[in-house]
């Protein structure tokens, strides 16, 4: 007999959803202009509900760079220390568009189902 599994707590589900969208959020935050690590962090905090630990962000930025989606450059900040700026490569821009399209399609379909719930506000 199958053992009934407890439903995942909404908080846990919400955290999983954030995890899954983090690559897209990081890449999208670099769409308009190059940013350095701390700016990416702040952009995610300000522009979305994503709070990312520094120890998580930098390895991801490095991986995206190795994947060829980002390129980096050290720039003298004028404050006495250089900053490492990240910018999207052409491949990175294409990937953001693909991911955004997939996200929008998925979101539209899900919203269609959720309409019946009729939640507002």
């Amino acid at each position: 007999m199958a053992i009934p599994q407890p439903a995942p707590a909404p908080d846990n589900w919400s955290a999983q959803l954030r995890k899954g969208s983090l690559d897209l959020a990081i890449l999208a935050s670099l769409w308009k202009k190059p940013l350095y690590g701390l700016e990416v962090l702040r952009s995610l905090e300000d522009g979305s509900d994503l709070t990312v630990a520094e120890g998580t962000l930098y390895p991801i930025l490095n991986r995206l760079r190795v994947e060829g989606l980002l390129e980096s450059e050290w720039v003298d900040s004028g404050t006495g220390h250089p900053r490492k700026y990240y910018k999207l490569t052409d491949a990175g821009r294409r990937r953001v568009k693909e991911m955004s399209r997939a996200w929008a399609e998925f979101s539209d379909k899900l919203n269609g189902i959720l309409k019946s719930i009729g939640l507002k506000g």
Partner: peptide
């Protein structure tokens, strides 16, 4: 890599 490698803190 697509879903779980990234660790966001809620």
């Amino acid at each position: 890599r697509r879903t779980n490698s990234t660790t966001a803190t809620a």
